[in-house]
Computed example of a mutant assay.
Amino acid sequence: MKLSIAALLVTSVAAFAPSSVERTSTALNMDRRSAFAQIATTGAVLAGIPSIASADGAVSSATINRARGLYGDRIAALKDAVAAGDFKAIAEEKNAFILFNSGAYPTNKAKKNAAIAQTNEIFKAIRSGDKAAVKSAYDAYMAANEIRPLPEINSNVGQGYSSEFDFRSRTKAGAIYVR
């Protein structure tokens, strides 16, 4: 809407601007009727152009579950690296922490800020090189955010997903029964 108003304003200014650089007279050679017709035509053209799409950051239980499943599983998979003190492996999954925090708590600012603070504690312990602090910060993060790895589903026992659009497809939780 703002873009349409700005474009309309620019075209109306252009309609009244002198068309020749050589002309020294400030008198307009265009009568009012043709100027307003030009403005109205431009406005009609702009009104016919579809609005620019804008992402609204849709939040639903499905998007939250997807973030918890995708990034929570990546964080849970770091359990062995944390136990071994492999700081490089944890640091390589920094984006999983960031994406989990923003995706799992898109509307709850208090929980999101708490998760971000816990993530900062993990990486502060990594920077200091303290394996025990990393393990305790990681365990606190996992418990506070209720992160669990995706279960391993066997297609003989059950079905983990129903379409290719499900985040569990192509994971250990993504078994599907096929006759």
Rank of each mutant, 00 (worst) to 15 (best):
M1I: 11
L3W: 15
I5P: 02
A6N: 15
A7H: 11
L8M: 11
V10Q: 03
V10C: 10
V10S: 05
P18G: 00
S19G: 03
V21Y: 08
E22Y: 05
S25A: 08
A27W: 06
N29Y: 14
R33Q: 11
A35T: 12
F36C: 01
Q38W: 01
I39V: 05
A40W: 14
T41E: 07
T42I: 11
L46T: 12
A47L: 15
I49K: 09
S51V: 10
I52R: 08
A53Q: 12
S54N: 10
S54L: 12
D56L: 10
V59P: 09
S61R: 04
S61F: 10
A67W: 01
R68A: 01
Y71T: 11
D73E: 11
R74Y: 02
R74G: 05
I75M: 02
A76E: 02
L78T: 03
D80T: 14
A81V: 04
A81Q: 00
A83G: 07
A84H: 06
I90W: 00
F97C: 05
F97S: 07
I98L: 13
L99H: 08
N101L: 06
N101M: 02
N101T: 02
A104I: 07
Y105R: 11
K109Y: 11
K109P: 08
A110T: 05
A110S: 05
K111Y: 08
K112H: 09
N113T: 13
I116N: 06
A117E: 13
A117D: 14
N120V: 10
E121A: 15
I122T: 05
K124V: 14
K131N: 00
A132N: 12
A133V: 11
V134N: 09
S136P: 10
A137D: 00
D139T: 13
M142Q: 04
M142S: 05
A143T: 09
N145Q: 07
L150A: 09
P151L: 15
P151A: 15
E152A: 12
I153F: 14
I153A: 11
N154P: 02
N154E: 12
S155W: 15
N156H: 15
V157P: 06
V157T: 15
V157K: 12
Q159N: 07
Q159C: 13
G160V: 06
G160D: 02
Y161N: 03
S162E: 10
D166F: 03
A173W: 02
G174P: 06
R179P: 14
R179M: 08
